[in-house]
Amino acid sequence: MVEFRVFRFDPEKNKEPEFQSYEFDPYKGMTILEGLYYILENLDSSLAFRSSCREAVCGSCAMHINGIYRLACKTQIEILKSPITIRPLSHLPVIKDLVVDLTPFFNHFKEIKPYLIPKESPPEKEYIQSVKEREKINDWLDCILCGACYGSCPVCAQDDKYLGPHALLKALRFVDDSRDGGAKERIAFVTQNSGVFRCHTIFNCREVCPKDLDPTKAIAKLKLKAVFKKF
């Protein structure tokens, strides 16, 4: 038997959030997401949560599970101690139960212009990128925009204007891309008041990232690039 203590809140109906307990027999290898689906299908059809790929690719199932932000589809029940407490991502308005409004998160992402900006004189046919140039961005590519880093960051909690680890990591991904012509513009943007220098190097983002990325390192690199104007 396992007990799930799930955060429940419907802003239209409830004044205060509460935790609701569900008990069931998990099978071997059952994930938290499968557990939530079990509850939805067998115990309580009113439970709301997000998911899509079920294989740690889409980033939609990030939530706070037994004290750590994780992907529900990538976390097996048997590695956790029951009762398993599940809350939504922090610092974002709750729409219902485990579903949060990701608008601020994606707005910050859009702000850094997450696409290649053409160089002044683009090549006639295509940009050629060498293996070495490609390797430079290897460490920043795999972000699935799950929001775990954003939820875990105390600076995001205090300042909704702070760009957040996800947006800053993506900014470096484009700054370091040999095909991008917007490095100067991006660095100027991330050095604004709510940019890289608001980061207190707390390392939470690095600790929780389900794709083992290191936003803290990316932010440190952006800081140095801003100081030495190396871009």
Partner: peptide, 11 residues
């Protein structure tokens, strides 16, 4: 992205 920002915070 606005570009009006300065590098003073960097220094």
């Amino acid at each position: 992205m606005n570009q009006k920002t300065s590098f003073s915070s960097a220094y």
